[in-house]
Design a protein around this nucleic acid. Structure first.
Lengths: 339, 339
DNA sequence: CTGAAAGCGCTTACAG
DNA sequence: CTGAAAGCGCTTACAG
């Protein structure tokens, strides 16, 4: 079972291995060109010999290997919690299929517990891949900078602001999505809208808030508040209603649920007592989420585009970083009413 | 950003690259041994230089690369159907983590539609990995034989009977699980039990049937029938009851549901009219499946063991194939009653 | 248009 | 116990 190599093909076609190499991986600025006749012979030889290039050797020799890495800071396939990564993975797989790439999941670089780290060891392992897609929240953003400094191509899922490093990323357009929600609320007659968000402020939270405050207008009163879900108690709701807010935009589902609980506790109901719009997309789709008026995040598409952008960066490293924002959707539910 | 290589380390430690190689990958029957002093110097040099071996080069040179491939005939992350592979993947990831392996998903070898094939091209791509885990039903079993002939180590999830090839596999012990179900039914007073299975008979179906018929005894009447779910109609049920069967063991949930439908159609109910036990495990766990008396399949564990066995085969290729069966569980529901 | 040669970073007999 | 050398299968300047 000896492997058929390039030199076998070259011998059969009566050319040198360099010619075979040129045939199997045609490059624009190639220093070597092949005649039609020679190419025909090479292809015929490849056919009869059943030759296929050895990716490992191609890789070592500096060629492309058609493998893209997928790195996550937590387990990719969690059992206990919702599978946050699944929809992204789905899109990534589709993108990889379309572009003829294999996917390398970096599972080795993780301790059994605790967050993974790209370094040390990880970065070296990544070297097998042509580039990588980074998923999930990084516990330490300096790692991104450090990876960036190595020159290894990668794209993050989710916008990333980094000092002294222009990163490739694919993100959902939360700003536009939230602005759209505000517009819809206004069209339904709402004049006082409250935004309740998480206390942990990352890029996507900033984007949502920006989209919200960007709709500031004469006839609208917008206020932003960030708090834990525990802080949304009876008093909080009382104050909210007394202040005249008719709709609350919550950054997470947890906030939305906490709020609805309080409404129920005071024998009110949503959206009669107050309207609620969730500025997030749930991971699973149990029956209960359908009723919520909310935005949808194009997770699968983000994964697919991430692959596409990554390949583009690998092929043309001189490119400026690619930053893609994808539009979110508005999902009408029954928690927002006109007033 | 030049990569730190083995020779950098060797130079700093004042030894040859062979010694460094011996230090980073100690092998039992190594032709080269390293002195304590030298090893210490090498480790120190590796430390200060931040050296980590290049897996690609290791691979080309014939060393191990700590990458295991995962091949599926269909998309690994399906969007439309239930994710059949997820629980296995979860176990595989856990196993890979524990054993310091990365996971390479072969997504490139698939056309956009139609089943994937290991050949051609695929086998070459697999070469990057040390071995592979094969998931899902193969449309053409000859491919397994062919892959086996290449000498590439792999293990399948699910038992595989192949002519002239002893394969490594990890399977659920359906035979024992079904035998156990029969025993439980008998203990509850059932004397006439019917087994209804899928018409497509693969290894796991054979195992179930074997487990069933293996409990044949004087005081038990056991009968096996294979049919489409459509064939389970009113007449079928009538006959079943007339014949005196008091419990039906169904190979799939679909069969179980079809049967229950017919029971309902004749204004009966399960388990009053007849008991049902599903000899399968659902992929998702919606509220509705909980009530079924059924067996559970240790999918995660199967994935984890598959990794472990694969690594064992990679390390000792002279081993005989490893065939592991893992016990299933019995999940009491409310569709089986004593009579 | 094509060949001979070096080199990618490792591992592994083969000599000392 | 350790070094020099060949080789894994490719790609890529460098010469023709």
């Amino acid at each position: 079972m000896k492997r058929v190599t390039q030199s076998d093909v070259a011998a059969m076609a009566g050319v040198s291995t360099a010619v075979v190499s040129a045939v199997i991986s045609p490059k624009p600025g190639k220093t070597i060109r092949v005649g039609e006749e020679a190419e025909k012979r090479v292809r015929a030889a490849m056919e009869t010999l059943g030759y296929a290039p050895d990716v490992v050797a191609q890789s070592l020799a500096g060629g492309k290997r058609n493998i893209i890495g997928v790195f996550t800071y937590e387990a990719i396939f969690p059992s206990d919690s919702e599978n946050f990564f699944y929809p992204f993975l789905l899109g990534i797989e589709r993108g990889a299929m379309k572009l003829g790439q294999d996917l390398l999941l970096f599972t080795s670089s993780s301790l059994e517990k605790g967050p993974r780290s790209i370094f040390p060891g990880g970065a070296n392992r990544m070297g097998v891949a042509d580039g990588a897609i980074l998923l999930g929240e990084e516990p330490d953003k300096r790692e991104l900078k450090r990876l960036y400094d190595t020159g290894f191509p990668f794209v993050t899922i989710g916008r990333r602001d980094t000092v002294k490093a222009e990163l490739n990323w694919v993100a959902a357009d939360y700003a536009a999505a939230v602005a759209d929600v505000v517009k819809r609320c206004a069209a339904l007659g709402h004049r006082k809208l409250k935004f309740v968000g998480a206390t942990k402020v990352r890029e996507q939270n900033i984007d949502r808030e920006r989209g919200f405050m960007g709709r500031q207008a004469e006839d609208l009163t917008l206020s932003v508040e960030r708090c834990e879900t525990d802080d949304i108690n009876g008093e909080w709701l009382r104050r909210c209603l007394d202040d005249g807010y008719t709709v609350v935009l919550t950054e997470t589902f947890k906030h939305a649920v906490a709020l609805e609980c309080q409404v129920a506790a005071m024998h009110g109901s949503v959206p009669q007592t107050i309207s609620i719009v969730a500025l997030a997309s749930p991971l699973t789709r149990p029956a209960d989420v359908e009723r919520w008026t909310r935005i949808s995040v194009p997770r699968e598409e983000m994964g697919e585009v991430a692959v596409r952008n990554l390949i583009a960066q690998i092929r043309s490293p001189e490119n400026t970083p690619i930053k893609t924002t994808l539009p979110c959707g508005f999902v009408p539910g029954s928690t927002l009413q006109a007033i």
